[in-house]
Computed example of a mutant assay.
Amino acid sequence: MVRLPAPGNRVVVRYLLPTGQATDVLGELLSADDELVVVDGKRGVERIRRTDIVAAKPVPPPPAPRPRRT
């Protein structure tokens, strides 16, 4: 079983699609229980079954935006 940080942390989760291919979601972990993990990523809120998860880990916050050149 993959260990996840507490909700509210930024995570990357690799999981299997129904086709058998793997994909990733990077975003804020909204919730996690024994059956379902919910992550708010760039594609929106994704609900992932625990049985489909291959790997997961916490990641640091995104870097601050660069100032615009004038």
Rank of each mutant, 00 (worst) to 15 (best):
D33L: 05
L16S: 04
I53L: 07
V59I: 11
V11A: 15
P18K: 03
V25D: 04
I48C: 12
G20W: 10
R43N: 12
R3M: 10
S31I: 13
P60L: 10
R50V: 01
P63W: 05
D24V: 10
V37S: 06
K57C: 11
R43P: 01
V38L: 05
R69Q: 12
P61S: 11
P65Q: 14
G20L: 08
D33I: 06
G8R: 14
L29G: 14
I53D: 00
D40F: 07
A22D: 02
R43D: 09
R68W: 08
G8P: 09
T51D: 07
P18L: 07
R14S: 15
P18D: 08
D33Q: 08
G41T: 03
L26Q: 11
R49A: 10
V11M: 05
P58E: 11
N9C: 15
D34S: 08
R49K: 07
R47I: 04
A22P: 01
P60G: 14
P63N: 07
N9E: 15
P65D: 15
A64F: 08
P5R: 11
D34K: 06
A22G: 08
R10Q: 13
V59D: 05
Y15I: 03
S31W: 09
R47E: 03
P18M: 15
K42P: 07
P65S: 15
R49F: 05
I53V: 01
R50G: 02
I48W: 04
D24K: 06
P60A: 12
V45L: 13
D40T: 08
V2D: 05
N9F: 10
P7T: 01
Q21F: 02
P58T: 00
R49M: 01
G27N: 03
P7R: 04
G41E: 01
L16K: 01
G20M: 00
A55C: 09
G44R: 00
L36R: 06
G8D: 13
L16M: 00
D40W: 09
P62W: 12
V37M: 07
A6E: 06
L29W: 13
A32C: 00
P65E: 12
G27W: 00
N9W: 10
P58S: 12
P60N: 04
V45H: 10
G27I: 02
L26D: 04
P5W: 10
R68V: 13
V54L: 05
I48N: 10
D33C: 05
V13E: 02
L29C: 11
